[in-house]
Computed example of a mutant assay.
Amino acid sequence: MAGYHVPPLERLVDQFESLPGIGHKSAQRIAYHVLNMSREEAQRFAQTITDAHENIHYCSVCCNLTDSDLCPICRSDNRDKSIICVVEDPRDVFALERTNEFNATYHVLHGAISPLGGVGPDQLKIKELLKRVGDGAVKEVIMATNPTVEGEATAMYISRLLKPLGIRVTRLAYGIPVGGDLEYADEVTLSRAIEGRQEL
């Protein structure tokens, strides 16, 4: 059985394995699951992927993913349009929305500045952000890029562009997670927690 292989199955496994977070064993499991679907289920599954790929695009305002010109957040009249929270990825919007605490708008950069990765400011949705703040209605931009070297560099770069426009630029607080123990926190996390301390 060592030489046994079915090329269409191998290609299917390879496709699933190319997805982020899917190893070879998981890819095999998914591929066998797909093969056990009825023909109608398999066609519906494939059509759903095609439909998503064809119908989902960037919101014309915030660059988040949507299937219409404006995403639901930008369409909403109940959102505070004077505050924009800048994130790296559409998944960050979903994470922040789950808190039910933020009632303003977002701007999705679709990445972070990474000279080593070949990603410069022109590859991100920074020009679109500058265009949004140019009308004078925006009072504050919250930088919610990831606490990585690339995220910090991106936040600083955008901050330097916005400050001369008289816009308040803030950064998400970072530090000890709720329920965490100080003894397990690294030095950078602890120093951030001390910098971001609040009065009780």
Rank of each mutant, 00 (worst) to 15 (best):
T148K: 02
L19H: 05
C74W: 00
Y157F: 10
G196C: 07
V86Y: 01
K127G: 14
C63H: 14
S76F: 11
V86H: 01
N146Q: 11
Y58P: 00
T99L: 13
Q43L: 14
R197H: 10
A95E: 07
L116F: 12
E40V: 14
I83T: 05
T50H: 08
E195I: 02
L96I: 15
K131M: 09
H24M: 12
L129V: 12
L116R: 05
C74V: 04
N64P: 04
I158L: 02
R171Y: 03
A155C: 12
H53Q: 13
L129T: 11
R171M: 01
V138L: 08
I126P: 10
D51Y: 11
G120P: 06
L116Q: 12
S26F: 09
D67Y: 11
T154I: 01
L109A: 00
K125W: 04
I49H: 05
L190F: 07
R160S: 12
V141M: 09
L182C: 06
G134K: 15
D186Y: 03
R75D: 13
R39T: 13
S26K: 10
H24T: 13
T99V: 12
D77N: 14
R29C: 08
G23M: 02
G21E: 02
S76R: 11
Q28R: 15
G175H: 07
K81L: 08
N55Y: 10
A112V: 02
S76Y: 08
E150K: 01
E40C: 07
V133N: 08
I56P: 00
S68H: 06
K139Y: 06
V93K: 03
T66Y: 07
I158C: 03
N103Q: 14
A137E: 15
A2E: 14
N36I: 05
G23E: 01
A42E: 09
V141A: 08
I113Y: 03
E41N: 10
C74N: 02
E17V: 13
R192H: 07
C63V: 06
G166A: 09
I22R: 05
C85V: 07
G134F: 12
Q47E: 15
S26P: 09
V87R: 00
G23A: 05
E97S: 10
E97H: 12
V108K: 04
T105Q: 15
V169I: 09
V34I: 15
A185D: 03
P115L: 04
D122K: 13
L96T: 07
V141W: 04
A95P: 03
H24F: 09
C74G: 01
T154W: 01
A31Q: 04
L70R: 04
C59M: 07
T50C: 08
G23Q: 01
P72L: 00
R44L: 14
A144F: 00
H24L: 11
E17F: 10
L70F: 07
Y32I: 10
G118T: 05
E140R: 08
Y32P: 02
P8F: 09
C85D: 06
D89H: 12
T66P: 05
M1P: 13
S159H: 01
G23H: 02
P147Y: 02
I49C: 05
G120N: 10
